[in-house]
């Protein structure tokens, strides 16, 4: 009877098991790192050199730290120094290892009606945008990028919580969604260079400001502390760290380009203290 055949087929399809491979670990990384496309260059090499499958969870810095704290990942790669140091201090991470940095940029409408194209510092740019009340789209999701943006407003003596009118718009979402929003509203937006270069829906937006050293964005690798979470794959996390700071990996990071632009500057070597 055909109905029975159908049910049998259903069962068989269901029973096909999910294959698991040998060495694997989970690492939470930020959207900006993932959007850069660097992972797609590094992961195959890691697999080749170490036989290690690194599964990436792409989240905001806030959630990455949360995942590490709960022991749901074996390591994190994020960019929010103060939060990272607190994380290690509380014993969730065993240590913090700097790997590389990239930079943040200000993107906005090509006509640049706030006039930030010619200013010298990021703080001045922020002041102009606020002064003109030019539409500005913020991540508003407690990510590393969002925290950095808030720090910039603060350095300009401004506080987004006190902004009136509706020119300051928090999307509460990831970099991609925020860029899509900015593109649709033709608004100013604070982004990391990698996400911007890989972004496919630029519309009338253009890169308007970059280069201020305060915009540098340090990435650090933090293995989860096995004393807190004995199940984490301590050895694999250590192997990965050794690989990331190796001359080969550092060269690959420095050589990585999008549209002829270097994205990351490798600066491994400085090992932070354990607490």
């Amino acid at each position: 009877m055909k109905f029975r055949t159908l049910i049998t087929a259903f069962v068989m399809l269901t029973m096909t098991t999910i294959a698991a491979s040998a060495d694997e670990m989970k690492m939470a990384v930020t959207t900006s790192f993932h959007n850069s496309g660097l992972a797609e260059i590094l992961l195959p090499e890691i697999k080749k050199d170490l036989g290690l499958d690194v599964h990436l969870l792409v989240v905001g810095t806030g959630q990455a730290l949360k995942l590490g704290q709960a022991g749901d990942v074996d390591a994190i790669l994020v960019h929010s120094r103060a939060a990272e140091e607190a994380f290690v201090a509380k014993g969730f991470g065993s240590h913090r290892r700097e790997i590389m940095y990239n930079d943040f940029i200000l993107v906005g409408p090509k006509d640049d009606h706030a006039g930030i194209l010619t200013v010298k510092t990021a703080a001045d740019a922020m002041t102009l945008i606020a002064g003109k009340e030019a539409i500005f789209v913020s991540r508003g999701d407690d990510s590393g990028t969002h925290r950095k943006e808030l720090a910039l407003w603060k350095s300009a003596g401004l506080d987004p919580a006190s902004f009136t009118g509706n020119w300051y718009r928090a999307t509460g979402s990831g970099m991609g969604a925020t860029l899509n929003t900015a593109s649709a509203m033709n608004a100013y937006v604070f982004a990391d260079r990698a996400s911007w270069l890989n972004f496919g829906n630029k519309g009338e937006l253009a890169l308007l400001f970059s280069g201020d050293p305060v915009l540098f964005n340090q990435y650090a690798y933090i293995p989860i502390n096995p004393e807190k979470h004995p199940h984490v794959t301590k050895e694999l996390a250590a192997k990965l760290e050794t690989w990331l700071v190796s001359a080969k990996a550092q060269r690959m990071i420095g050589d990585y380009e999008i549209a002829g632009q270097q994205l990351f500057t490798p600066n491994a070597g400085t090992l932070d203290s354990d607490s």
Binding site: N180, S183, F199, G200, K202
Partner: peptide, 9 residues
């Protein structure tokens, strides 16, 4: 969702 995030409509 990922591709939307990348603006790769």
């Amino acid at each position: 969702a990922l591709e939307v995030g990348k603006g790769n409509f």
